[in-house]
């Protein structure tokens, strides 16, 4: 249990740093920005404390808002994702997900892929709606959501694969 806490705190800090130092500088075609820091929310223990998840998601989002000057858009997107996470689990892994031991990190299966995809789409659409915040620019919101989703998805899967725990 103790090591889970340490791992999650480390993940919080490392993903936040990576986001600020590396990923915020990536800007494909001027519209696609990757936000793989949401892996923190995705990889949070499946049966972990939900209140703790909500609070830590709020803070990782708020830190990003601070660095990117986006007000509270990241925080709102992150807590929505954190709140909806059990429902996304249900959709992707089936109703009985609580009884199986599922982990997100591991070989990429259809279930895992659909879980990550749904989460990224939910996070990005809320993020861009709040960040742009103008109905006249709704087309831009959709384009940015679409392209950034692809980019974030690729980075998320690569990071999961690179940090996959070694089987003994």
């Amino acid at each position: 249990m103790n090591s889970t806490i340490v791992v999650n705190i480390a993940r919080f800090i490392i993903l936040l740093l990576l986001q600020v130092v590396v990923f915020n500088r990536i800007d494909l075609f001027g519209v696609a920005d990757p936000y793989p820091y949401i892996l923190f929310i995705l990889l949070f223990p499946v049966n972990g404390n939900r209140a703790l998840l909500l609070l830590s998601a709020f803070f990782i989002g708020l830190f990003n808002d601070m660095f990117l000057n986006t007000g509270g858009a990241h925080a709102a997107a992150c807590i929505t994702l954190a709140y909806l996470r059990p429902y996304i689990f249900k959709i992707s892994f089936g109703v009985s997900y609580e009884y199986q031991t599922i982990s997100i990190a591991g070989k990429l299966t259809t279930e895992r892929f659909s879980f990550i995809l749904t989460s990224v789409v939910i996070h990005h659409i809320i993020l861009y709606l709040l960040e742009i915040f103008r109905f006249s620019l709704i087309a831009d919101v959709l384009i940015r959501t679409l392209l950034s989703t692809v980019l974030t998805l690729i980075f998320c899967i690569v990071i999961i694969h690179l940090t996959k725990p070694v089987k003994r």
Binding site: R50, A51, L54, L55, F58, G61, L62, D65, N69, T70, G71, G72, A73, A75, A76, I79, T80, A82, Y83, L130, F133
Partner: peptide, 22 residues
């Protein structure tokens, strides 16, 4: 409904920060 209430509270905070920033 503590989780829902916590969610709504945090959502309210972040939405007000967003609106204020715009």
């Amino acid at each position: 409904n503590s989780i829902l209430l916590l969610f709504l509270l945090l959502l309210g905070i972040s939405l007000s920060l967003t609106i204020q920033s715009h």
